[in-house]
Design a protein around this nucleic acid. Structure first.
Length: 413
DNA sequence: AATCCACAGGAAGCCCGGGAAC
DNA sequence: GTTCCCGGGCTTCCTGTGGATT
């Protein structure tokens, strides 16, 4: 029989029973250590089953604290119960990191409510916003029932697009005739309501739910429960769960991170043909998790952003830390000259630097040096096992030449 | 206490691409 | 074809500011 490249994997023993369970988008049947939150939110949403309007809610907590999972879980149960007792409750989840303008959010919600017999999708551009809003109201009324609109990462939307959308959504009920709506905002940032109009703030924050980060013990518990379901017996070596939990607890108690660590370390053990995961695999997984988060971001950066980051990296290559904006801008201009591009204004670069900061590729801290002005201290925070030059220049030869000549030039000084 | 640096970052407006409606 | 709308990228202009220096 002909040999196939997959043969060796087919015969290899797998350590997973069900890998899906370790992915963070998996919806478990039980959410440990979140009983209070589940209780508080579901008590409020119970109103929907009675046909009333639940209070709008704002859900706060750091990433990986279970906000999205809990909300999703409750909405699912709500829908099921609603079907059982003949009350229509529908939830619509919008991730405001991907869908981040008023128009797009409204369009997204509207298109989720598309009836089978209708085929008119709201176009992604072209309509006036108020028309999209009217259409949304019409569709909601046509369906009837209670709608739970969940805006995940709402802080991102507010920072970017302001609070017009929230104003409109929280006053939906005055436009609706037969349907009812309630808004749940999920935020990583406790203070995002500072940006809101007071009216919107009071309407959206009728009920606040705070998710505290998991501590190391709770994370261990979560990992054990998931590992029992996801992995074969006796696969997890001594101290592995504890280490995953401890590393994730350092990262502000991020359960997502803990699950990723466990999954990737198991993959590493499996790949190495070993029958047990040990702490070494976890360490290896940790650096891979960091790289996996960073690489796609680096690769898809627009050219101008790459040039700015390149300028920062060049400074650092030269042994400089805490570089001010003006100096980054100088190097950036030289880089532009080198590849014969028109440089953007300093105002724009200042914005791009803030962007890079938000993406977590650099840290930019505003400091005042007294008489010598106010600027930022800019440092890259790319982990040692990531090679930014390689990733950024992969698709752009021009950029490669910036790095090459600049490195030569600077080292000859 | 006043001054002043080197920016931060808000506001307004321009231009472009993409689309709808008439 | 023209006129409207939205969103993104960008520029121009502007005001604000923390703290060392005068």
């Amino acid at each position: 029989m002909k040999e196939n490249i997959f043969d060796k994997f087919m015969s290899q023993k797998t350590l997973f029973k069900n890998k899906e369970i370790l992915r963070h988008d998996h919806r478990p049947n039980h959410l440990p250590h979140r009983n209070t939150e589940v209780e508080k939110m579901s008590y409020n949403l119970w109103e929907a089953l009675k046909g009333h309007i639940p209070s709008n809610m704002t859900v706060y907590g750091v990433t990986g604290a279970g906000k999205t999972a809990v909300t999703d879980y409750i909405c699912h149960h709500l829908k099921v119960k609603g079907e059982a007792i003949g009350r229509q409750v529908e939830s619509i989840m919008v991730n405001c990191r991907q869908i981040d303008t008023q128009y797009r959010v409204l369009t997204h919600i509207g298109n989720m409510l598309l009836e089978d017999y209708e085929n008119e999708e709201i176009p992604f551009t072209g309509w006036p916003t108020d028309r999209v809003f009217k259409e949304l109201v019409r569709r909601m009324d046509a369906r009837g029932g209670v709608f739970i609109v969940v805006l995940d990462e709402i802080d991102h939307l507010v920072r970017k697009a302001g609070d017009d959308l929230l104003y409109n959504l929280t006053s939906l009920n005055s436009s609706l005739k037969s349907a009812r709506a309630c808004v749940i905002g999920i935020s990583n940032d406790l203070k995002f309501t500072d940006f809101l109009d007071p009216r919107v703030r009071s309407r959206l924050g009728q009920l606040d739910v705070l998710f505290r980060p998991y501590d190391a013990e709770q994370l261990q518990d979560i990992l054990r429960k998931r590992a029992d379901l996801a992995l074969e017996a006796d696969v997890v070596g001594p101290g592995v769960i504890e280490l995953c939990a401890a590393l994730a607890a350092q990262e502000h108690g991020d359960a997502r991170c803990a699950l990723d660590l466990l999954r990737i370390s198991t993959e590493k053990a499996e790949f190495a043909g070993e029958l047990r995961v040990n702490q070494g695999h976890v360490r290896a997984a940790q650096s891979q998790v960091e790289a996996d988060q960073m690489n796609p971001v680096l690769a898809t950066l627009p050219t101008q952003q790459k040039l700015v980051l390149a300028a920062i990296l060049l400074n650092e290559k030269n042994g400089l830390r805490n570089v001010p904006t003006g100096q980054v801008y100088d190097i950036y201009r030289q880089a532009c000259q080198h590849i014969r591009q028109n440089p953007l204004t300093q105002r724009r670069i200042s914005g791009l630097i803030s962007n890079l900061d938000m993406l977590g590729l650099i840290t930019a801290r505003t400091v005042s040096k007294g008489r010598y002005g106010r600027s930022k201290e800019i440092n890259s925070c790319i982990p040692a096992n990531v090679n930014p030059v390689e990733i950024m220049t992969a698709a752009e030869e021009d950029l490669a030449s910036v790095f090459n000549s600049a490195y030569k030039h600077q080292s000859s000084l």
